[in-house]
């Protein structure tokens, strides 16, 4: 993967990590309004980062969850996650 692609990937990973943490925290603290509002702010940024990555590199999720597919079908393009050199 090229440098711009990698940079976008790191942004997606960083935002998603924060959201995973907040998600697990909210599972056991569902009434924490501050955590919920941070979750919502980050989730908007996350959607933006995913869009930018998918535009440049290809879909992150299959079965239609990454929106309309471009031609040719990009899901099967390499590298797969374990092959990426950071």
């Amino acid at each position: 993967m090229d440098q711009p692609g990698l940079k976008l990937l790191r942004e997606v990973q960083e935002l998603e990590f924060a959201l995973i943490e907040l998600n697990l925290y909210l599972d056991t603290h569902p009434d924490d309004e501050a955590a919920l509002s941070t979750f919502n702010k980050l989730s908007a940024r996350y959607a933006e980062a995913r869009r930018a990555y998918e535009e440049q590199v290809g879909p992150l999720v299959n079965y239609g969850h990454s929106g309309p597919a471009r031609e040719p079908w990009r899901w099967v393009e390499e590298p797969w996650p374990w092959e990426i050199e950071y």
Binding site: R10, L60, P81, I84
Partner: peptide
């Protein structure tokens, strides 16, 4: 379940 085509955190060796 959905598969995300990325690692949760970069693995470097």
């Amino acid at each position: 379940w959905l598969y995300e085509k990325k690692l949760e955190y970069p693995v470097r060796v």
